[in-house]
Design a protein around this nucleic acid. Structure first.
Length: 470
DNA sequence: TGGTTTTTGAT
DNA sequence: TCAAAAACC
């Protein structure tokens, strides 16, 4: 069997529900031909994009697992190492020519640099008479979700309503994995020198385990998600984001699990709050595709570029290291630093603290998150930071400033989450742990607050007020 | 997906 | 007097 079709995988490292892989296989087998898979690590490019060691580590593991899975199906996985996107067209072209590849497949990527990369690759290949087949992007609703005026939505709720309508109309069956095309291949682990260690005890690099985690979540926790998701001590959220970010799990596989579970439990899938979170993922990705300025360091609301952010390096360092003297903020940042992941409620708390109380440039916070997050993904991360900073589309109103202590009392009532990540405070009682007295701080060797909350809040609001008057 | 201050309305 | 609602940032 001649291998003439090549499927290029990037952030869609899975066999199941993978449009490019599925359609390439169908097409190839109808011609009695075979497919191969290509991955092209670009560590230098990832570094430019601030990709974290954790995400890189998980990616390496997933590539290896995928390689074994594909080998069972007789599908070879090739890995072409390079440094940046610039060298890819030439490298891929060479590979295709010397391996007699005639058809090239991939799933559309939305960030601007990635789009430019893909376009350059396609142009080079087309000049060599290799056909390029660009498949649906990795969203639940891959079509443009547009308002009646044909414009992209700038507010989430109307987007969501339209999104739900389109979703109800579309076929939601995930694409099956390719079938066995040849005898199983023997593979040895790939040499991936850029791989970094990460918390593989929390996120095993295995697509099947990701899928198991998905179904367990839907079976046991999805129905309680609405009430319990805001409490970081509860194991209530899916923690599937690292897998979604690298495409070890596809969003439509999540949808399938939601449909099944809601059906079983006689609930309406439209009411699933977890589904709504997945809609946010689609929303921010589509937004990024419609507004390329977002990929170029620009705020969604241009007028907010006139804000003069404070830049206090000592405060920035304290925030990064989890030494702000606000227990809930510090617990959250230490969770991020230690595990590569942070609970969503805490992401809002630390981002509000950073952008409003420290009044630091949201782009610096965004970059730090990317450099640590195992699930770091441009659109959602940028969207979240701009939401917090009130510079974004459908963002928090500028006067919405989280009071870290109130948030802590509400969402970590007993202080157990703080105790887990700020052990020096573990002896304090549930009342004082949210804002220890000066004597207690001294005793616990815990820093004094780096910010005076009340005036900081007023200053942030005043800065935005001034913007209006200009 | 907030927080604080002011007003209201039931005692 | 106080808690809930509303108004405001």
């Amino acid at each position: 069997m001649k291998i003439t079709h090549l499927v290029w995988l990037r952030n869609d490292l899975r066999c199941q529900d993978n449009p490019a892989l599925h359609f390439a296989f169908l097409e190839a087998s109808s011609l009695q031909e075979g497919i191969a898979v290509l991955v092209t690590p670009t560590p230098k490019q990832w570094a430019k994009h601030n990709e974290s060691d954790a995400k890189t580590g998980l990616r390496a593991g997933l590539i290896n697992t995928l390689s074994s899975t594909l080998a069972q199906l007789g599908i070879p996985l090739h890995c072409l190492d390079t440094e940046t996107f610039e060298t890819l067209p030439e490298l891929i072209a060479q590979f295709c020519t010397s391996n007699n590849i005639k058809h090239f497949w991939f799933n559309r990527d939305l960030p601007i640099h990635e789009q430019q990369r893909d376009q350059a690759v396609c142009e080079t290949l087309k000049s060599l008479d290799i056909s390029c087949h660009v498949q649906a992007t990795d969203l639940i609703v891959p079509r443009d979700v547009l308002s009646q005026q044909g414009t992209p939505f700038k507010v989430f709720t109307p987007f969501f309503n339209r999104w739900i309508t389109l979703l109800a109309e579309q076929d939601i069956t995930p694409f099956p994995a390719p079938e066995k095309q040849a005898d199983a291949l023997t593979v040895k682990p790939l040499d991936l020198p850029w791989a970094k260690p990460y918390r593989d005890d929390l996120w095993p690099a295995d697509q099947d385990i990701a899928k198991q985690k998905l179904w367990q979540f839907c079976h046991h926790k999805e129905r309680h998600y609405k009430e319990s998701r805001d409490y970081p001590i509860e194991p209530a959220t899916s923690t599937l984001s690292p897998y979604l970010a690298l495409g070890a799990l596809g969003p439509r596989q999540c949808l399938e699990a939601i449909f099944y579970t809601c059906n079983q439990e006689e609930r309406r899938w439209q009411d699933s709050i977890w589904l709504k979170e997945l809609a946010w993922r689609d929303f921010y990705r589509q937004l990024m595709a419609h507004f390329p300025a977002l990929c170029m360091n620009r705020p969604f609301k241009p007028e907010t570029d006139a804000l003069i952010w404070r830049h206090n390096n000592a405060e920035f360092q304290a925030w990064c290291e989890g030494k702000t003297g606000f227990p809930i903020v510090d617990a959250a940042m230490r969770q991020l630093n230690q595990t590569g992941w942070m609970h969503n409620r805490l992401r809002m708390i630390v981002a509000s603290f950073f952008t409003k109380l420290m009044f630091a440039d949201w782009r610096k916070g965004e970059a730090y998150f990317m450099s640590k997050l195992i699930d770091g993904e441009f659109a959602a991360n940028n969207g979240g930071w701009q939401w917090s900073a009130s510079t974004g589309c459908d963002a928090a109103p500028y006067f919405r400033v989280f009071n870290p202590t109130r948030q802590s009392e509400t969402y970590d009532k007993n202080g157990d989450f703080i105790r887990r990540f700020v052990p020096e405070l573990s002896k304090l009682d549930a009342k004082s742990i949210h804002d220890p007295k000066p004597e207690q701080r001294k005793l616990c060797k815990y820093p004094a607050p780096i910010i005076d909350y009340k005036p900081a809040r007023l200053a942030a609001i005043a800065a935005f007020d001034e913007l209006k008057g200009r």
